[in-house]
Computed example of a mutant assay.
Amino acid sequence: MNTEDSRREPAEHARFAAYLAELEQVGEADETALVGRVLGDPDRVMAEAAVVRHLDRRAAQLWPEPAWEEWAAAVTRVVTGRPFLVRRLEEWSLFRAIALRLPWRPEDLLASSDWLQLKAATGAGRPDALGVLDVLDVLAEGGRTKRIRNTARASRARRIEG
């Protein structure tokens, strides 16, 4: 390999950046088609990484809104067969249920990923998002990692004091 080749950005890096830019600007009507196109990329890992970033960004915008249900259902149809992406959408749905004080089950939270447990333990950056102390109690006692348990305990202490 010559020095010019070693300085070139790998093709999948360029596609990843292009996909992120497209996904950030896509309109609602074209979103699921674009997600499907990205997932058709031959580099499955890179494609899923781009899509999960998009899902996280869109879910963070939409979870408190009524539009969430329709969006989540449409995106779920596109990511079927991609276990990581399906699980991330399921976890966003659980986060939404917790944050909006809809019914949820502690065993689902305890079976969730570190990502969701930590997100719930920190209150997701919104002081009012997880006002239910039950969530923090569940994670303080049964969170998967010491970091999650300690974060939940600290969040619980702040909410009790405040």
Score class of each variant (00 low, 15 high):
Leu34Ser: 05
Glu28Tyr: 00
Ala74Thr: 08
Trp92Tyr: 12
Leu130Arg: 00
Val75His: 03
Leu62Ala: 10
Glu12His: 15
Glu91Phe: 07
Ala67Thr: 13
Val79Thr: 03
Gly125Cys: 05
Gln25Ile: 00
Arg44Pro: 00
Glu91Arg: 05
Ala11Val: 13
Gln117Pro: 08
Ala29Tyr: 01
Glu107Phe: 01
Pro42Tyr: 04
Ser112Val: 06
Ala11Thr: 10
Val79Arg: 01
Leu110Thr: 13
Pro10Thr: 02
Ala21Trp: 04
Arg77Leu: 13
Trp115Arg: 14
Glu31Met: 13
Ala59Thr: 10
Arg101Phe: 04
Asp43Phe: 11
Val51Ala: 05
Ala21Cys: 06
Ala73Phe: 06
Leu116Gln: 03
Thr32Asn: 14
Thr122Gln: 13
Gln117Ala: 11
Arg77Trp: 03
Leu118Pro: 00
Ser112Lys: 02
Phe16Met: 10
Tyr19Asn: 11
Arg126Pro: 00
Ala21Lys: 14
Gly36Leu: 09
Val52Tyr: 01
Ala49His: 09
Trp104Tyr: 09
Pro103Ile: 03
Leu110Gln: 13
Ala33Ser: 12
Arg77Val: 03
Leu118Ala: 05
Ala50Arg: 09
Gly27Cys: 05
Pro106Met: 05
Thr122Ala: 06
Glu107Ser: 13
Pro127Ala: 11
Gly123Pro: 10
Val51Tyr: 04
Ala49Val: 04
Pro127Phe: 04
Asp128Met: 02
Gly36Asp: 07
Ala97Lys: 13
Met46Ser: 13
Trp104Lys: 01
Val78Cys: 06
Arg58Lys: 14
Tyr19Glu: 07
Gly81Leu: 11
Trp92Ser: 04
Pro127Asp: 15
Trp92Glu: 04
Ala99Ser: 14
Glu70Asp: 13
